[in-house]
Design a protein around this nucleic acid. Structure first.
Lengths: 221, 221, 221, 221
DNA sequence: AATGAATGAGCGTTCATTCAT
DNA sequence: CATGAATGAACGCTCATTCAT
């Protein structure tokens, strides 16, 4: 909702801009700095000075907008998780592809998401800090996994009910598929082990993973 | 050469213990302190003072035995990885159980290992620090995964060749099974999410996981 | 622009002082602390804590203003060298004194400078640390020696050209005079040996040194 | 003088060896380590561990032979000063060279001594530490300067009395000559400034210095 | 006498946080 | 609200010295 113009008459130009931009400008700047630094070195190794520097604001300003390092970190993590972990919509729209093709597409999307630097970095940060910031996991799970799992499990449920697949526990099946997608490449990348992530290798993995899943949940003959 | 027992009569208890333990006592003490602290708070949050305190030695002593924090950490991690990550030998000895039963036992062992606090802590530490200590991954992979994967993939290979299973790529299949084992419980525990880890829930998971794997690799009818 | 006096009425004393002193107040404070400590105990024995204490600031503040101990030391040394090693201007202005009297005045000035506690301390620090801070020597030489040597060697050159003295190599002659000035008193003071530095003893030394120099560079008869 | 053999009868074998070797062997070893380290980095930067390592003995042994770091340093400095600062004997033996030639030889010897690394290092150490170890100066002065100055001033005295030179204050004259020798090369080397120390440059310096001294103390015509 | 592990005070430095302006 | 200087606790680490063996 837009306030009537005269109501703003006492606002400074900055304020007006902030309202216009749908977000406090300085806060935005700070989050950009936090992003650069936290993603690069994690929570503990990040320093508020460095974040301030990267954000182009003073250190004091950080504390005007956030309660402290922990608070800024939480805000950063929530923002990243909600905006960078794209929902997989490969199954979203009705299409006339085969079951196999749909799953293959979904698997491809998951693998590509999970080997993306941003996903890897967020996973790493989450695992590192979840003992100190238990709420991170909720955020990540809610935005990172649940949305994808829900989409998938609803789709599986539908296929179960119309007999294309036999999936008595669609939400567990969805989770299994997510796990299968991490074999070989995603898993090794998390450990920073050298791994062949050429498109060819990925395609083969997609195929093997899809086949495996199909074998588990193919309808009874 | 072993000295006759009476020849030791003049030795202090420490000396005797040292001989008995076959390991430098203080080093051992330090590693116990490091264990307590690193497992609890990870590398960055651990302080050498705290480790010294927990170990019951002075700070200086830490540096007499290790080159520095990084070095102590590496030693700690290697020790933990090699001694705490038990190899799964559920398949090791020939037995007259069915394929299904063997896999089920293996899955049970894997799940129990992976939800153990020590495995969880080591996984967390590894993921946190692998960017700073790339060699951790090698250690962890070599002692944590490869041994188990090898055991499993050799067993699968054998079953493939005698026709009990159809596993054209046993080492990938092994990895898939490990991934499947992490669905539901292991995965959620890593995120410190509340999860039903009752024996009943675990048993159900074991069963579902074994079934899924069997479906993938059952021999062609 | 100078603000009218009443416009400052709201300024804190510090601000006023800062404006008055034309120099960053805390930096100045720190340098005063560094001065006290470095001059007293040299570089290695000085501790940043002690300097902070003497300066009346916190240890952290030291690092806001200087990059570290070495950096603070360099700043201290440069400041001391440039401000405390007075140029000798005994020969600067044309006067109607005799050659002998001019040299005598110069010798007196040099000796007094070189036995001053500050010169002695800076010399000591320089000799101690020149292996670790090679640039100190440049600073000291440029501000401590070259200016004086140049003044003197130009004056000698002039006297050579108008026949009052015979000084074929004025800059070497200047250096010789500086060396001669260090006999007996300066030299012994550097070694902290007891030495008669009464005005009478100094006057005698001045006279002997002047005579010696005159004998070397008196014009050919 | 050698003590009669029976006087030693109560001495331990080590003691006898010490007397025989003219010095306790371990003490000797330690002093060799101290020499390496102190000459290289001075007192403050030297560590007892490093000295022990260089000496090939344990750290504890250092404390069995010396009261502590300061004590070892004093012993080191005294040994160095007494054994490494060669007395200049260029004038020692009666010869049939001219006055000028004798002085020139002496000047050459002094310059070579003073630019030797060992002299430079000892001078540097002395100047650095004389405020903390006032007794160093005595040692250095007694062994480093006095012997040389005495030799020279006695020779000058003799030349004065037989009319070859006019040196009313031979010991001051001797000191002046030592000072003159430091112009240009020695002085700059102490400051670690780049300087031409080729034989040619040194020879020229010797000649200029000798000439200067001769002019000061040539007998009245 | 020789050892070397153990000590702990002290070092230089970093950094989250505060606060006067 | 923005600033950035100031703070001081805590860090990893060094080292002269001690002492049980």
């Amino acid at each position: 909702m837009i306030k009537p113009i005269d109501a703003r008459s006492h606002l400074s130009p900055q304020k007006i801009q902030a309202i216009t931009c749908q977000m406090n400008n300085k806060k935005e700047q700070i989050l950009r700095g936090a992003e650069k630094v936290f993603l690069a070195v994690g929570y503990e190794r990040a320093s508020m000075s460095q974040i301030a520097r990267e954000a182009g604001v003073s250190k004091g300003t950080l504390y005007n907008h956030f309660d402290g390092k922990a608070s800024l970190f939480s805000a950063f993590f929530e923002e990243q998780t909600t905006t960078k972990l794209a929902t997989i919509d490969a199954l979203a729209k009705e299409n006339n592809k085969s079951i196999q093709e749909n799953i293959s597409q979904f698997v491809a999307a998951i693998i590509h998401l999970m080997i993306s630097p941003i996903s890897q970095a967020l996973y790493r940060i989450l695992i590192s800090e979840v003992t100190q910031f238990p709420n991170l996991a909720d955020t990540f799970w809610r935005y990172g996994y649940t949305r994808t799992l829900n989409t998938l499990s609803e789709w599986l449920s539908k296929k179960h009910h119309n007999g294309d697949l036999f999936v008595p526990d669609p939400s567990f099946a969805a989770e299994q598929l997510l796990m299968l997608c991490q074999a070989r490449i995603v898993h090794r990348k998390r450990f920073m082990l050298p791994v062949d992530d050429s498109q060819k290798a990925i395609n083969q993995l997609i195929s093997l993973t899809t086949d495996a899943f199909m074998k588990i949940y193919a309808p009874h003959p």
